[in-house]
């Protein structure tokens, strides 16, 4: 496969479907966890520069609460689950039964951080298991890691593998929306960033040559 990626509309559709199935399953898990409806938008597949990628969640300096999971196995890549600190605080508050929980000021409570890591773990686990079922690939999540910090600092970590060979990323972005906070625009992002070598693996597993 040559680089930058030569992707046909078929390839883009497949990547969309990958995001759809993964995030769909994760939304179901989140919905069960919170016991209410979670809406999901149609995934967006973008081929974007690194700077553009930071703008997707508000620019490099914006503070986000993020859970990061590396994908290991037949294909490799990175998954980020991203919420604003306020949104993350709401979810964590509900999970630990302490509505006053806030990610705003460090030091953060151990319980809160642990709950958020677990939330990310459950969601990325369901994302990945759906992806694994769909592609029949052996995909395993690493232990999740959490960070509440600047967008630039966090997301570039998922670009390390990719950036060695490319100046653009293929970002599979799915937005989750919590019905309860609909008016407050609670929006969670799921980012899937396959490593460059893994696109071919994904396409082949779905019976499509990467050169088609």
């Amino acid at each position: 496969m040559t680089y930058p990626y030569e992707l046909t509309p078929l390839h883009l559709d497949l990547l969309k479907e990958i995001g759809n199935i993964g995030a769909g399953n994760a939304a179901t898990s989140l919905s069960k966890l919170l016991n209410r409806k979670i809406n999901m938008k149609v995934p967006d597949v973008k081929i974007i520069s690194f700077d553009e990628m930071m703008e997707v969640v508000g620019g490099p300096e914006q503070v986000i609460a993020s859970v990061f999971v590396r994908i290991q196995g037949d294909a490799t890549g990175s998954i980020f689950f991203v919420l604003s600190p306020e949104e993350a605080s709401k979810f964590v508050g509900e999970m630990i039964g302490d509505e006053s929980f806030q990610f705003g000021e460090p030091p953060f409570s151990e319980l809160g951080l642990s709950a958020y890591t677990e939330l990310g773990n459950i969601l990325s686990g369901s994302y990945l298991s759906a992806l694994s079922d769909f592609t029949q690939l052996n995909l395993q999540p690493s232990v999740p890691s959490i960070s509440v910090d600047m967008v630039g600092a966090i997301l570039t970590f998922g670009l390390i593998e990719l950036s060695q060979v490319a100046d653009h990323a293929i970002l599979i972005d799915t937005i989750l929306q919590d019905e309860k906070y609909h008016l407050e625009k609670v929006r969670g992002h799921f980012f899937l960033l396959p490593d460059p070598d893994s696109f071919q693996t994904f396409f082949q597993s779905l019976g499509v040559s990467s050169n088609e």
Binding site: D51, E61, M150, A153, T156, F157, S163
Partner: peptide
């Protein structure tokens, strides 16, 4: 200055880059 980018400046102007992590 963006990611993997380079800039040059002379006073009184300032130069900045945002969101350095492992970079």
């Amino acid at each position: 200055v963006g990611i993997a980018d380079l800039g040059i400046v002379q006073a009184p102007n300032l130069i900045r880059t945002s969101g350095l992590g492992s970079c």
